[in-house]
Design a protein around this nucleic acid. Structure first.
Lengths: 204, 204
DNA sequence: TGAATTTTGTACCGCTTCGCATATATTGAT
DNA sequence: ATCAATATATGCGAAGCGGTACAAAATTCA
């Protein structure tokens, strides 16, 4: 692939453009972001945006999808670093933190949890995207807990799916709390406490 | 108070109107809701809305504030029902559930967590409101855990603030997951697991 | 060189947005 | 009855919205 195509070459990189679009949606949400703002952020004008990705909703979904692929990939890499369940779980949360904290003077939290959640009640496609994203997080964590149990790090009575849900839940809260800039909330401490709480009573 | 006022009597009840406005914001978020929709929902026309509550943002903040007062009141009542820490904690989550599930064919989740979170990155007032609301939840839970510890239901080593943060976090996730209509997620089971996980290792 | 193809830029459409200016209605006080 | 005070109703206006028609630009192929 990547053979020379016939017409005028595009002046943008789709991945970069979607990244820039995400940045805008991330900060302001779907409804709060105008196509003009996306146009400015990406450097593409509106007809190009439309031709490349579709309408506003399609741009949003593709931008979020791209984020999800990348972000979840990094979270999984940390989660399966194989330095023991406690260290890996902490690494999982810590891997999310810089992303959640990103933003000029404003911590943007998680684009999926913090912006898709609003639209979920109004748009079935975005609702399905969100549900799937939450499932992916739970599943990755569940797989990691199953591995830990099989390796004898966790007691045989430990239920991976249950632990996965708990661990996923704490990630959701982390996303919300960081974006809310809750006073006195210290993410690193929260992560430490989370890991301890989840593993409490399940160590082999 | 409530002496007869001088001009034409208002044709609306402020509390009811704010409740109707919240309903619209709850479903569609702040940016996704127009003043026309609020006007329809409340039965008030725009000038009346403006005179009564202020601009769109003021309406939103007052509606959410009213919700918070009422909702948190009910949660606290359940949390301090005094039937033991495990039962009370479960009651706390169960008290939130019907509210989170409400909505015609759509579970709306929590209006604060699911709609204020987006705006928090863009609006400092709403950010502060959200942060305060999250603090209130944590504080109520912390107080309840402190009580349980003082009564000997929890070990002396239990840290109420830490437990409060954990328990609050699971409420956040409950709100998000219900609104996302995550397939296979069963709130009642999740609540049961949450209570068990939080109290694990802290029972006296 | 010229035709075909793809992307870009301008400019616009119809519609909705929020906020308010103005006029009307309904009450209590005088 | 008249006035003052408050609430409601109509409707406007400037700006912004998402989306697109159309022509110019830039490239490959013949």
């Amino acid at each position: 692939m990547n053979e020379k195509r016939r017409g005028r070459p595009r002046g943008y990189d789709p991945e970069t453009a979607l990244g820039a679009a995400l940045e805008a949606f991330w900060r302001q949400g779907f409804s709060g972001t105008s196509l003009d703002q996306i146009s400015t952020a990406t450097g593409m004008n509106r007809p190009s945006l439309y031709a490349a990705f579709g309408d506003k909703k399609a741009i949003y979904r593709k931008a979020v999808e791209q984020f999800n692929r990348d972000f979840l990939g990094r979270l999984k890499a940390a989660l399966f670093a194989d330095e023991g369940i406690a260290a890996d779980l902490a690494g999982f949360y810590l891997a999310a933190l810089p992303t959640y904290r990103s933003g000029e003077g404003v911590a943007k939290g998680c684009p999926v949890i913090c912006t898709a959640t609003v639209e979920a009640a109004v748009d079935d496609d975005i609702q399905a995207d969100l549900a799937r994203a939450l499932d992916c997080i739970d599943e990755a964590l569940t797989a990691r807990f199953a591995l830990a149990r099989d390796r004898g790090e966790l007691s045989g009575a430990a239920e991976p799916a249950k632990l996965g849900r708990m661990a996923g839940a704490l990630l959701h809260s982390l996303a919300v709390r960081v974006r809310a800039r809750q006073s006195g909330f210290e993410p690193e401490l929260f992560i430490e406490e989370s890991v301890a709480a989840i593993l409490a009573g399940h160590r082999a």
